[in-house]
Design a protein around this nucleic acid. Structure first.
Length: 261
DNA sequence: ATGTCGCATTCCATGCGA
């Protein structure tokens, strides 16, 4: 089973890319972030015609997440508990039955948090703590679980071409990295790093200043696995090719293959 | 080189978020 995450930076602008990539990559489950539209504006008919069931949590202008899948989920949960005042569409889960049992997948669009001295940074850290609590609860289910999405976290210096350029950025501040480590310390596995410890494994390149041409990237899109999912890990890779397509998203898909039927 | 996108509106120019 192939499970992917991709921040598409407007699903309406990226619909043709999404369809082309679905056909090419043949994923079973896809977590999307930054839909930047309401549910009704999602290109549902086209994606369904490509063979995918569509579950969305849209929002006008910003944010928005979705989970696409070959099969209809048994259950969908929209929103991340722990803050009734949080109106951002940044989190959803879906549970699927397979021949090998259940798999639970979350699509996460973690807040960017910049600038760090604004209210946006405590919102990011609060969201990360809520995610940690949710992950802890889900881990108690002892299911194959994939927490997939745009974390807006550069975990380690090796995950940036120029780490010095990010030291004061909300994506790489010590508090951000510590919160990410607390998540991992629950017993989650960073799927890409379990498969590949090489440098220059990036999932995002800024649109500005020819960042992609210079390979001036960062790795901020992650698939975190529960022990039951990690036990079934076959491989994980970044699909860098889509960044070279015409009018691309600034993020590329990251895919994990699990030994699940 | 503050050099790019995508969204929305006070709408063909600007501010915001990233």
């Amino acid at each position: 089973m192939l499970i992917a995450t991709w921040n598409v930076n407007s699903v309406r602008q990226r619909a043709a890319h999404l369809l082309r990539w679905l056909k090419q990559a043949q994923p079973d489950i896809v977590c999307l972030q930054e839909l930047k539209c309401l549910d009704d504006a999602f290109p549902r008919l086209e994606v369904e015609a490509a063979g995918y069931h569509v579950e969305t949590l849209g929002q006008k202008t910003f944010n928005g997440v979705a989970i696409l899948a070959r099969k209809r989920p048994d259950e969908v949960i929209r929103g991340l508990e722990g803050d009734d005042a949080d109106s951002h569409a940044r989190y959803m889960e879906a549970v699927f039955s397979t021949e090998s049992g259940v798999v639970r997948v979350a699509s996460i669009y973690l807040p960017n948090g910049n600038p760090p001295l604004s209210e946006k940074y405590p919102y990011k850290l609060g969201f990360m703590e809520r995610l940690r609590r949710r992950a802890a609860a889900l881990l108690r289910l002892e299911e194959p679980l994939v927490l997939a999405g745009d974390y807006n976290v550069i975990p380690e210096p090796i995950d940036a071409r120029d780490p010095a350029a990010w030291v004061s950025d909300a994506l790489f501040l010590p508090q951000t990295r510590a919160a990410f480590r607390r998540l991992l310390a629950l017993g989650l596995t960073d799927a890409l790093r379990a498969c590949d410890q090489a440098p220059e494994r990036y999932s995002f390149w800024d649109y500005q200043a020819g960042a992609f041409q210079k390979n001036n990237g960062i790795r901020i899109d992650h698939l975190l696995l529960s022990p039951q999912a990690a036990d079934r890990l076959v491989t994980c890779r970044i699909d860098k090719e889509t960044r070279s397509w015409d009018k691309p998203s600034d993020h590329v898909p990251v895919l994990v293959e699990l030994n699940l039927a």
